[in-house]
Nucleic acid binder design. Structure first.
Length: 473
RNA sequence: GGCGGGGUAGCCAAGUGGUAAGGCAGCGGUCUGCAAAACCGCUAUUCGUGGGUUCGAUUCCCGCCCCCGCCUCCA
């Protein structure tokens, strides 16, 4: 089945084919965080969607070249460093480190490049692009010394968002003090230095200042990946104006179609409302971890709903993620045990065919239909568990399903990390085995309770006592 | 006002012009010293609502109601 994605530009599901002549390399650009604070779980929902996309492309044998930018200069970072009374770079550094640590916690694959907007090499490219735009009459320097893009000179402006510019209604969120602009919609390419910027400034042919937000992505994307990209992703809120502006600037310079497929993920809601600090429903990954949930539980919770559907984050949802993962964990454990056994089945079941497992990948081919894919996974878990109960699953078949899971998990990245058994737990477990041999049920049950209180769950099976960590990585 | 997304069981959530995947929770059962896990069975005559097309619509068309988002630097 061919890969298909919903393209924001055409508002249709389209078959995917990369630009690469060999058809194997995919150039992908993903808008990254603004490092003025810790990223919140809504940000990570977007990065997890992009991770799922990259991993599925790789499963389908594409080589993904991915870039994720870090915005380390903008109004918020400048305000933040001044409040903190430190240089901009010192202010953003810890947030960058925290961001990478969070990516690791969530098992999000690293992009190949993480360009930073303040890197002089990139600033030089931005300045070059702005110069070209001015030369082509697509941009102008206004009386306030800032350089703006002239949207009236770019007829396609508004095509991505499907906005008719004449009908735009101001929400009052944008500042209206920019009288210097030819039209309200013109956006800044270069922002002239202002006293409130302090020592945050770069030199340019138009005076000192700093780049506008949109131009950084155009410059870094084309510099690293070339003038044309296969896929560009971001949150739905980036469609307008950010991505619309990127198209205008980039195509204004290159004269070529910038991006083939625009993919955007819907927002994360918290308790059915948009996450915001004022509502008090604002969560960073650290907040979620502090509640005792692991990175992979968070990963599951944020990944399990289709990327174009709004996802409502709730603590009940986190609990469900925990239980679902426990189901997968114990299924894998049973398969491993079975696969390691000698073959001893006279009439192995014939009604489980590993080919059925392809339903998982086929579902992802269909615009990353994760719900259908997980449905297929749980179908297989139930069927193989049944065969295990009935004693009809051969160890060869168990091994085949473990191999299948390896492929599935190359996309999901949800396998539990092997838990070390602390000495205290090991001792309790051993003591419990002795109590059980003596048929001292009272003592055995007490110890089970003790272990549970310590976060370890005991199950007595025909093969003896099994112990697993009740939650966590 | 313009542009999107969505309303499917107590909750989360797929899906198709032919009679509703999966997960969680709940109930009953098998297994177990008791549990747990696992498995089996039950849990939406029905898919926001009113019409229309059709042999047949949750799925197509039209109207209406409700929720969420974007509309110039929020993933």
């Amino acid at each position: 089945m061919a890969l298909r994605f919903f393209n924001t530009y055409t508002r249709q599901v389209e078959e995917f084919a990369p630009l690469d002549a060999a058809g194997r390399t995919v150039k992908m650009y993903t808008c990254g965080p603004t490092v003025y604070d810790h990223a919140h779980i809504g940000n990570f929902r977007a990065y997890l969607f992009e991770d799922l996309l990259q991993r599925h492309l790789e499963l389908r044998n594409y080589t993904v070249q991915r870039v994720m930018n870090l915005t380390d200069v903008d109004d918020k970072t400048i305000r933040g460093c001044q409040t903190a009374g430190m240089p901009l770079a010192d202010f953003t550094a810890p947030f960058k480190r925290a961001f990478f640590a969070d990516l690791e916690t969530l098992r999000i694959k690293r992009a190949d490049y993480f360009p930073e907007a303040t890197d002089q090499r990139h600033i030089d490219v931005m300045i070059d692009m702005i110069g070209t735009l001015i030369a082509r009459n697509l941009a102008y320097q206004a009386d306030d010394k800032s350089v703006y893009f002239r949207i009236k000179a770019f007829p396609d402006y508004g095509k991505l968002a499907h906005f008719n510019l004449d009908e735009l209604q101001s929400t009052g969120r944008n500042r209206n003090d920019e009288y210097e602009k030819e039209s309200v919609g013109d956006f800044a390419l270069w922002k002239a230095w202002d006293e409130v910027d302090g020592d945050v400034r770069w030199e340019s042919p138009w005076g000192s200042g700093r780049p506008g937000w949109h131009i950084e992505c155009s410059a870094m994307a084309t510099e690293i990946l070339g003038p044309r990209l296969d896929i560009h992703c971001g949150g739905i809120d980036n469609i307008f104006p950010h991505h619309e502006a990127e198209i205008a600037q980039t195509e204004g310079v290159t004269g070529k179609q910038f991006v083939r497929y625009w993919l955007h993920c819907a927002h994360l809601l918290v308790d059915s409302q948009k996450m915001s600090k004022s509502l008090g429903n604002f969560h960073t990954l650290r907040d979620v971890l502090a509640k005792g949930y692991s990175g992979r539980e968070t990963r599951y919770a944020l990944l399990r709903v289709h990327y174009r559907a709004q996802l409502n984050f709730t603590w009940e949802g986190m609990e469900e993620a925990r239980v679902a993962l426990a189901r997968i964990d114990s299924w894998l454990e049973r398969l491993r045990v079975r696969a390691a056994e000698e073959e001893n089945i006279e009439h192995p079941t014939s009604n489980i065919q590993p080919r059925r497992g392809e339903a998982f990948f086929d579902a992802l081919d269909d615009d990353l239909n994760i719900s259908a894919a997980l449905g297929a996974l749980f179908d297989i878990i139930r069927e193989t568990n049944r065969a295990l109960d009935e004693g009809t699953l051969s160890s060869t078949a168990a091994g085949a399903w473990l191999d299948w899971w390896k492929r599935v998990d190359s996309v999901l990245a949800l396998t539990a990390a092997a838990a070390e058994l602390p000495a205290e737990i090991a001792e309790l477990t051993a003591a419990r085995v002795r109590a059980r041999l003596a048929q001292d049920w009272r003592k055995s049950d007490d110890m089970r309770d003790q272990l549970a209180a310590l976060g370890w769950e005991v199950r007595d099976t025909k093969d003896g006592q099994k112990i697993t960590r009740r939650s966590g990585a």
